[in-house]
């Protein structure tokens, strides 16, 4: 068991009548990449603002590297790197001025920790004199990450760093995070993209201010209770409407050109499904059993949450 780096217990926060976080507890081990996976409004940003000492919890407690987020906020801020969801560097300062500014407020020089950011910063160094506001989305993201790292934080907190960026930049960003992890930094990352879960060591699936499940992606997938098949035909919408009428079915959800259908184990097999489709005059289809993914689990947990 590794040492705990970030710890939260019973964290609760409301804005007026809106409960943004409802008693959230979790722990992140030192040196891991921990993902908070959930849609907009799930509570990810509120949680990160509590952890970064920018908001006070209504109740509950949290600590990072043994420092309490309320009592020890000054010392805590020294060891945190934070990249908020919205681009929050100085748009009117150049790339290089922003980096110098952030190094300055943490009283370090850029050369002290340059090795940490070298492979990221080198990609934007040709634009060192350009104003931050004039950078492309991908370059802004790299500059923001460089600025969050320049004081060599022990814990890096990234709020939706990949939202709105294309698949290539997204992939490159994750490659950077995996390299950073090797230097021992603990990384907390929030994302609405379900497919990024598998890039994390462990994840918390979060929705409506509640953590629905925590564990490694493989552990979470293990808990998926249904037997799952995927099926496709010429007309997905028609197939979906028919499948939903099959009484033994637990779920039918579109996944691209396929539909994933779930049943209780031992209740249904491929020939039952084929027979049902034949009765409904669908003869051309591909049907095969499959393993669940994180998105299947997320939807299953959401339905459980809304039925309780």
């Amino acid at each position: 068991m590794n040492k705990v780096s970030v710890y939260g217990k019973g964290l609760t926060k409301s804005y007026g009548k809106t409960e943004a976080l409802k008693s959230v507890s979790f722990s992140v081990e030192k040196g891991e990449i921990f993902g908070f996976i959930g849609p907009d409004g799930a509570g990810k940003t509120t949680l990160f603002r509590l952890l970064t000492t920018l908001l006070l919890p209504d109740s509950g407690a949290a600590s990072i590297e043994g420092l309490d987020v309320v009592k020890d906020y000054r010392r805590l801020r020294q060891i945190l790197g934070y990249m908020p969801g919205r681009f929050s560097l100085y748009q009117d300062l150049s790339v290089e001025e922003n980096l110098r500014f952030f190094a300055g407020i943490f009283k370090v020089s850029i050369s002290d920790n340059y090795h940490l950011i070298a492979d990221i910063y080198e990609q934007i160094a040709p634009f060192a004199k350009r104003r931050a506001g004039k950078l492309s989305g991908g370059m802004k993201q790299k500059l923001a990450l460089s600025c969050a790292l320049i004081h060599k934080p022990e814990v890096l907190i990234l709020d939706e760093p990949t939202t709105g960026v294309d698949a290539v930049s997204r992939r490159e960003f994750w490659e950077m995070l995996i390299r950073l992890k090797q230097s021992g930094i603990t990384i907390l990352v929030a994302t609405p993209y379900m497919d990024e879960a598998i890039l994390c060591d462990r994840v918390a699936l979060i929705q409506h201010g509640t953590i629905m499940a925590t564990g490694s992606p493989a552990d979470i997938i293990q808990t998926y209770p249904h037997k799952l098949f995927r099926i496709k035909s010429q007309n997905t919408l028609q197939l979906l409407r028919i499948m939903r009428q099959m009484p033994e079915l637990k779920s039918a959800e579109m996944f691209g050109e396929y539909i994933h259908i779930g049943s209780s184990p031992n209740k249904m097999n491929e020939s039952d499904i084929a027979a049902f489709l034949n009765q409904n005059n669908i003869r051309q289809f591909d049907l095969e059993p499959m393993e669940a993914g994180i998105e299947d689990c997320f939807m299953h947990l959401m339905k459980q949450q809304s039925s309780t």
């Binding site: 849609p39 939202t163 579109m254 339905k303």
Partner: peptide, 16 residues
């Protein structure tokens, strides 16, 4: 962008 996976699918059903 940003919506949960169930809502996203309901949206695609509307598109279909």
């Amino acid at each position: 962008g940003g919506v949960d996976p169930i809502t996203r699918r309901q949206f695609w059903e509307m598109i279909y």
